[in-house]
């Protein structure tokens, strides 16, 4: 479904991503773990079109999307929930969700998906007319995810959805990620919380200073000594 082939990404002179390749197949949850500054967000931002790789290619459902603008990629069925949520905090919950469906014209489908989102995140329904800036961190994360679902993506990129959340909420968010995946959406999940991420993922990649140092099934990585030492606190 997604094929990232040997991309190199720069911030000016800083070589942030050094030849990364990632494969995501239809229906999977794939996770990208690594410590702060490893290049996880940069990788996701490059896939979603917010940044352009200097070299390498990115294919989504066999279409070359390298260098395609971010707003067009959304329309192709690939949507990113950015790190730090980035909800439109001056707008209401409802307006945020409507913006998620910005490119869609199928009114019936939109209201159906809206219902789905409210079913997944009942708290958003309660706060429908509240300004997003007044939501708690967990609620904002739910809103950011709900907003992305409103574009009806086939591939959802999630950048550290658990960041800054209390353990109970983290659990809730991960359950919802699993649910979203089970209802047919493929997921590429970036996390610093390696334990939780490996628990729900099928495949995993370990990123260190712009390079992939380990890759395999989530099981393999959970059992790898290197991963246990560096990321699982054991």
């Amino acid at each position: 479904m997604l094929k990232v082939d040997n991309i190199n990404v720069f911030y000016g002179a800083i070589h942030a991503i050094k030849g990364i390749s990632i494969d995501v197949s239809d229906g999977e949850i794939v996770t990208l773990i690594g410590s702060n500054g490893a290049g996880k967000s940069t990788t996701l931002r490059t896939i979603s079109g917010l940044m352009k790789p200097k070299t390498g290619t990115i294919k989504f459902e066999d279409k070359d999307i390298t260098g395609v603008s971010a707003h067009k990629i959304v329309g192709m069925g690939l949507c990113q929930v950015p790190e730090g949520r980035h909800v439109f905090s001056n707008m209401t919950v409802m307006e945020n969700l409507q913006l998620g469906a910005y490119l869609r014209k199928d009114k019936a489908g939109i209201s159906q998906d809206l219902e789905e989102v409210f079913k997944k995140f009942p708290r958003l329904l309660e706060r429908k007319l509240q300004v997003a800036g007044t939501l708690s961190g967990g609620e904002q994360q739910m809103l950011a995810m709900g907003r992305a679902l409103m574009s009806r993506p086939r591939l959802l990129l999630l950048d550290e959805p658990s960041m800054g959340l209390a353990p109970l909420l983290v659990k809730e968010i991960f359950n919802i990620i699993k649910e979203i995946n089970e209802s047919g959406t493929t997921i590429l999940l970036v996390e610093q919380n390696a334990k939780m991420a490996l628990d729900i993922a099928d495949k995993a990649y370990v990123l260190e200073t712009g390079r992939i140092t380990l890759a395999g099934t989530a099981k393999e990585l959970q059992n790898s000594e290197a991963v246990q030492k560096a990321y699982l606190g054991g």
Partner: peptide, 10 residues
């Protein structure tokens, strides 16, 4: 409000 987030909405 947030040009990057807006792009991610399409």
């Amino acid at each position: 409000f947030d040009a990057d987030a807006a792009q991610l909405m399409g």
